[in-house]
Structure formats: C-alpha cells, structure tokens
Computed example of a mutant assay.
Amino acid sequence: MDSVMEENNPDNLDVPLPMDRWIPTEGDSTDPLQDRLYKHQYHMFLCDQKFEKWKKYLQRQFEKEREEILKKYEAKIQELDAPSSPPQKKAKGNSSRDEFFK
C-alpha cells in the first residue's frame, strides 16, 4: 500500500533522486550573496526532483491507461488490423455490349 501512496502523491520527497551537481550547505560562505546562491541552487535541485518524480508518475499512469484501453478494444483493433480480402475483379467487357458489336 505504501507504493500506491507514493504513486498517488508525487510531491513526496522522501525518496531522493541522485544529486547530479554539488550543492553546498547554507552557511558555508561568509558572503550573504553566496549563501543566497546556495539556497537557490538547492531549491532548483528540489524542483528538479519533483519534476522527475512527477514525470515518472505520469509515464506510469499513461502506460496503465494505455494497457487498459488496448485490452478493452483489443477485438476492434485486431478487426481493423486484419488484412481485408482483395476486391473481386470485374469483367472488363460487358456481355450485352459484346453481343452488340458481334
């Protein structure tokens, strides 16, 4: 049930994604502008995490819905994909017309 909760709540940041860049912790610098930069970098990292989790969640939902639709309409899809029988060839000459020219 926990995995269902995670799927339904993509905002949950309990499962961290790997950090692709180094983000220093607040207070590493004596410069207030540098500290502010670190805060913004960390905020961007959290936004990236949320975005990736949301993207994966939506991809899973899409795949589930797609499978349900394919199962529901499988017979119709097979009917449309089945090769149709070739059309009957019509005789080139019209029998009444051929008799007229004899």
Rank of each mutant, 00 (worst) to 15 (best):
P87E: 11
T25S: 05
P83F: 02
S84T: 06
Q78E: 14
H43K: 13
F62K: 08
F45G: 08
E68L: 09
E67N: 06
L37K: 09
I69T: 10
L46G: 07
Q88T: 03
R60I: 01
Q34P: 01
S84F: 03
L80F: 13
W54I: 14
S84I: 08
Q34A: 11
K72D: 06
P32T: 06
Y57P: 04
P87M: 07
K53E: 09
E68Q: 10
L46H: 05
K76H: 14
T25Y: 07
C47Q: 10
R36E: 04
M44C: 07
T25H: 05
K76W: 09
S84C: 05
Q49I: 04
L70Q: 12
E74I: 11
R66K: 15
K72G: 02
R36A: 02
A82Y: 13
R60H: 14
S84N: 03
Q34Y: 00
Q59I: 08
L58A: 13
L80K: 06
A82S: 13
I69Q: 07
Y42W: 14
E52Y: 06
Y57E: 11
D48P: 01
Q59M: 12
S84K: 08
E79Q: 14
K50H: 04
Y73I: 03
K71I: 03
L58R: 15
C47K: 11
K89G: 02
Y73M: 10
L46V: 13
G27S: 04
L33I: 08
K39Q: 00
E26W: 06
L37W: 03
K56F: 05
K56V: 12
R36G: 02
P86E: 03
G27F: 00
Y57W: 11
D28S: 09
K39N: 00
E26G: 00
K55T: 13
P87H: 09
E65D: 15
W54Q: 15
K56S: 10
K39M: 00
K56W: 09
P87S: 10
E79A: 14
C47D: 04
